[in-house]
């Protein structure tokens, strides 16, 4: 099977290890991965800040970049949600504003093919045990987009439970937002920081060594807070845990 990797701008620029891990994991499972170079950003930060029109070139670009792939796999729930929920809205609004159906066509063509990594593993490949080995205590923060917009449900947890050597501990208040929220983290910095504090108090209380997530945007915010506080808890994307094996174990970068 051949799929396109939608690395996303945040992973490309700030968390390449997550994208590399996704490539290695998928290849290990027998999937051929392409990285169409025309991809940049889904437009979520602009859209959620109120600049809908600024996203329109990115809708066109993203749809064009991934044309022809049945599966566009991405290790970022929030970018999937952007494409699935908001691309059709951008198209509909453009049509209402008298600018035709071109963006709707682009959105409709792309949205059903974009799939979040854990959805792809569990639903398309039908695997839960991906042959990973990760001898650490882990707690999992389900991002809001994964939890509520995509409805990932138990998928990430089922994948984690099948990892050899991994001890999974439940995160109290897991369903609560970490406080990132894109530009919210800056526009309402005090509330955002208070939300991170509470999330991390819960995470630290589990005694876990690793705080796992499936969205690096949450981990950017939580990780930045952890480093400022000097806490030893290590934020890590799920793909990096699943890519880790006994032969090629995960090493802190």
């Amino acid at each position: 099977m051949r799929v396109a990797l939608f690395a996303t701008c945040v992973n490309d620029a700030l968390f390449p290890a997550t994208a590399v891990a996704t490539v290695r994991l998928l290849e290990r499972l027998g999937v051929t991965v392409d990285f169409p170079a025309g991809q940049t950003c889904c437009g979520q930060p602009q859209y959620n800040t109120g600049y809908r029109r600024a996203c329109e070139p990115l809708v066109r670009r993203t749809a064009r970049a991934f044309a022809g792939y049945d599966h566009v796999v991405t290790p970022s729930g929030s970018c999937v949600a952007m494409v699935r929920d908001n691309y059709p809205r951008i198209g509909a609004r453009a049509a209402t504003e008298g600018r035709g159906g071109e963006l709707t066509d682009a959105a409709t063509a792309l949205a059903p093919r974009v799939i979040e990594l854990t959805e792809f593993l569990v639903d398309v490949l039908g695997v839960e045990d991906v042959g990973a080995h990760f001898p650490y205590t882990v707690t999992y923060h389900p991002s809001c987009h994964g939890l509520r917009m995509l409805g990932l449900g138990e998928r990430p947890l089922r994948l984690l439970r099948a990892v050899k050597g991994l001890e999974l501990v439940e995160l109290p208040g897991a369903e609560e937002c970490c406080g990132f929220g894109g530009t919210f983290a800056v526009k309402n910095a005090a509330v955002s920081a208070a939300m991170a504090e509470d999330k991390l108090a819960n995470a630290l209380g589990t005694g876990a060594q690793v705080l796992c997530g499936a969205d690096n945007s949450c981990l950017l915010h939580l990780g930045g807070t952890l480093r400022r506080r000097g806490d030893a808890l290590r934020p890590l994307h799920l793909a990096e845990i699943l890519a880790s094996t006994e032969e090629h174990p995960w090493r802190p970068s």
Binding site: D12, S192, G224, R227
Partner: peptide, 13 residues
Amino acid sequence: SRDLPEVPAEPFR
């Protein structure tokens, strides 16, 4: 309240 992320040596691209 937060550190900036460490920018990696090279982007994924």
